[in-house]
Simulated assay, not measured.
Amino acid sequence: MVAYRYLGHSGLKITEITYGNWITHGSQVENDTAVQTVHAALDLGITSFDTADVYANTAAESVLGAALKGLRRESLEIFTKVYWPIGPKGANDAGLSRKHIHDAIHGSLRRLGTDYVDLYQAHRFDYETPLEETMQTFADLVRQGKVLYIGVSEWTAPQLRAGHALAKELGIQLVSNQPQYSGLWRVIEEEVVPTSRDLGISQIVWSPLAQGVLTGKYLPGAPLPAGSRAADERTGVRPRIEDFMTDEILTAVQKLRPIAEESGLSIAQLALAWVLHNDNVAATIVGASRPEQLAETVKASDVTLGDDQVAAIDEALLPVAVTDPALTYEISSKTRPAARGPEARQPVPQTA
């Protein structure tokens, strides 16, 4: 069964393999299959589920809510997020203003079919809203019982310090950050992780397999496998995959194969275990388009890597990994991504 870890400096435990539905539910996967996959996750011991209102333009939350309907709410940990524009995408349909957070949480609760979420996350930093306004609104939601804990996603180290200080002043807990993190994308290691350790904030990481590149299924100089994410233009994430699809990177990933085989693991399991080796990581988010995929994924929860294995993985990947901490400052837009007009009513692919 999947192991649990504490989330930040709190008493909340979450499963270190957390199920996420960014590009699957409501878009890539039929609803019946999505429900079956959620139930497979539960059977394997996953009780933590991560979503966001923007995923499939709110459809992902609705699918997850339907899949969890009738289950004992106290046995689940449900996370969602606010920031990106949804609906008609007007002037106040994005960001972290009191108005947008108020509207967003009630929409999320309705779609998820629950009275509260365990973790409510600021999906990006909002430069257009005073941080005091955002944190005060989060504090009000905690006191109303609609949110239990507060988290953020892709915040810089100074932003984490400022948010944590305000949260403490308001008597609430900022317990998590949700960044991209993998053996190939390591920009949080130099500043964000040390700051988070100091503050008692955990990482709940997304894209631990670098959009599937760290499964080892993409080979240098070979055609893209049929049905793979890199070959699928519908998901809206193909450009991000292409960043990792250089021959240099793909060759480096293949160096993991003997390390994995010696450990009795797949390359994907090895890559997930590497992420979980970081003691500041409370959970790694995984997705699945079919129930049977999860049975192999969750085996990474039973793996403890030795120092020699970690060193061998780093020797293979670090020369091609992205490590510049300055990139964390470029992730959140300096202006809200809101738009008007009929074209804005179409779902816009977003990052996790």
Rank of each mutant, 00 (worst) to 15 (best):
G212F: 01
D302C: 03
A268E: 04
Q121L: 04
K69C: 14
A52K: 00
R345G: 15
Q293D: 11
R257H: 10
V320S: 05
E191K: 14
N57H: 15
S97V: 08
Q203G: 08
G183Q: 02
G216E: 06
W84R: 07
Y329C: 14
E248L: 12
S196D: 07
Q173A: 14
A230H: 01
I101N: 00
D118E: 12
E248M: 09
R197W: 15
A41F: 08
A40Y: 05
L318P: 11
S182G: 06
A222L: 07
H102F: 14
A321L: 05
T37L: 11
H164N: 06
I86Q: 11
E261N: 12
R336A: 05
A271T: 03
I201R: 04
T47K: 13
V281K: 02
A41P: 10
Q203Y: 09
I101L: 09
G216L: 09
K13A: 11
I331T: 13
K334V: 14
R110P: 06
Y120H: 02
V237G: 03
Q36E: 14
F138Y: 10
T129Q: 02
D302Q: 15
P349H: 05
V142Q: 00
D140W: 04
A167M: 11
A283D: 03
Y83D: 10
T284E: 13
N278A: 06
S182P: 05
K89Q: 14
L199N: 01
H106E: 15
V187M: 08
E191F: 09
K81R: 09
V82H: 03
S289W: 02
D103G: 11
Q254V: 10
S202C: 09
E242P: 07
E315P: 12
L174V: 02
I14A: 00
L199C: 03
W155L: 04
S196K: 07
A157H: 00
G287V: 06
L209S: 02
R124Y: 10
I188W: 01
V82D: 00
A295R: 13
L119A: 04
A339G: 11
T195L: 12
L160I: 09
V348E: 14
S27K: 15
M1Y: 14
V54R: 00
R229P: 00
V310W: 03
Y329Q: 15
G287C: 13
A295L: 11
V286R: 01
G65M: 08
L327T: 00
V192D: 00
E77S: 13
E30F: 04
Q28F: 14
L219R: 13
L317Y: 00
A231R: 03
G212P: 09
D247R: 06
D53V: 11
Q309S: 05
H164Y: 08
V205L: 09
S97E: 10
D307C: 12
D93F: 07
I23G: 01
T251G: 09
G221T: 06
